[in-house]
């Protein structure tokens, strides 16, 4: 099958099967998405970052924790592409391994938070009544505190480290998802097609899982992508304040924290991980923005 046949199959006005219709719809979304250069840029950067983190051991030129005290705080050169830090460790290799820590934290938070928020929101929105009141009160309590400060207090209460940072961020990140899913569910719940499904005798669980949750997914994906950048920033801030990943771990935020005292003279040492954070966060923001335009056009 040549490309043109694929395209006509995908863009067919009269799809022959459900699969063809579904893939046609996805292909059209992809066409819309591709037309947005900013979003494509974000996607490319995000993919490159994920690949770089996955293949860090192959791409790294040095062991990220190998110290070379004679050659500390070196300027970028052929041997050390991005220079060395205060213990003579290769910044480029640390950056790659740091990406694993950062992206790992982001993914863990999202995996914990998105299903939880979706479940809480759908249940609260679908059943209403006391379940709604109770769940939303709990949500409000968490929303009442600024995210970073609550996360800081949580981490301090457990003890500083990657795991507690993930838990702390997750604990502070789920309420907006619940709110969003609830709002979507409320608007879906009273539509005629849900009434029709209910008339055919479908159970509440089936309605929520098969009809309500999938419709919330679009805005949820957008929200998750945009949120990834803020998770990256919160994680980095925690690291920077000494409450996230602990040195010698090559987490980007803590790399800046330890190199901060050299900032006025060897400014590139803390600046390079800072740029990494900025690029990663920007990539997810661009991607999320583009996804929103495609998946959720009403909310531009």
């Amino acid at each position: 099958m040549s490309a043109s046949i694929d395209r006509t199959w995908l863009l067919s006005e009269a799809p022959a099967s459900r699969a063809q219709a579904a893939w046609g719809r996805r292909y059209r979304l992809w066409c819309d998405f591709r037309a947005n250069p900013l979003a494509m840029g974000g996607l490319v950067i995000a993919v490159v970052l994920v690949l770089a983190a996955l293949f860090a051991p192959l791409l790294a030129t040095y062991d990220p924790s190998a110290q070379e005290l004679a050659n500390r705080l070196a300027t970028p050169s052929a041997a050390h592409w991005l220079g060395t830090d205060e213990l003579g460790r290769d910044v480029y290799s640390r950056l790659l391994f740091g990406g694993r820590v950062t992206l790992g934290m982001v993914i863990s938070v999202v995996v914990l938070v998105a299903p939880l928020g979706l479940a809480v929101g759908c249940v609260a929105g679908y059943f209403g009544g006391w379940a709604d009141t109770l769940l939303m009160r709990v949500t409000d309590v968490f929303l009442a505190f600024p995210r970073l400060i609550l996360a800081l207090a949580f981490v301090a209460a457990i003890h500083p480290g990657v795991t507690s940072a993930v838990i702390a961020i997750a604990l502070t990140a789920w309420p907006p998802y619940a709110r969003l899913a609830r709002a979507e569910t409320l608007s879906i719940r009273n539509t005629d097609f849900i009434a029709a499904v209910r008339l055919t005798g479908a159970s509440s669980v089936r309605i929520i899982l098969r009809h309500v949750a999938p419709l919330c997914l679009g805005s949820l994906i957008v929200r998750v992508t945009l949120d990834m950048s803020s998770i990256i920033l919160t994680a980095a801030s925690l690291g920077f304040l000494g409450m996230g990943a602990q040195p010698p771990s090559p987490e980007w935020g803590s790399m800046i924290a330890t190199a901060r005292r050299f900032f006025l003279d060897q400014w590139w040492v803390p600046l390079i991980p800072g740029i990494a954070i900025f690029v990663a966060s920007l990539a997810f923001n661009l991607l999320g923005d583009g996804l929103r335009d495609v998946l959720d056009p009403k909310q531009r």
Partner: peptide
């Protein structure tokens, strides 16, 4: 783009650059 950059830059990095 200006706004997205503002969303994406870690605030401590901006502060450090500004000091520098």
């Amino acid at each position: 783009i200006l706004c997205l950059a503002g969303h994406s830059i870690p605030i401590f990095l901006l502060a450090l650059i500004s000091l520098l």
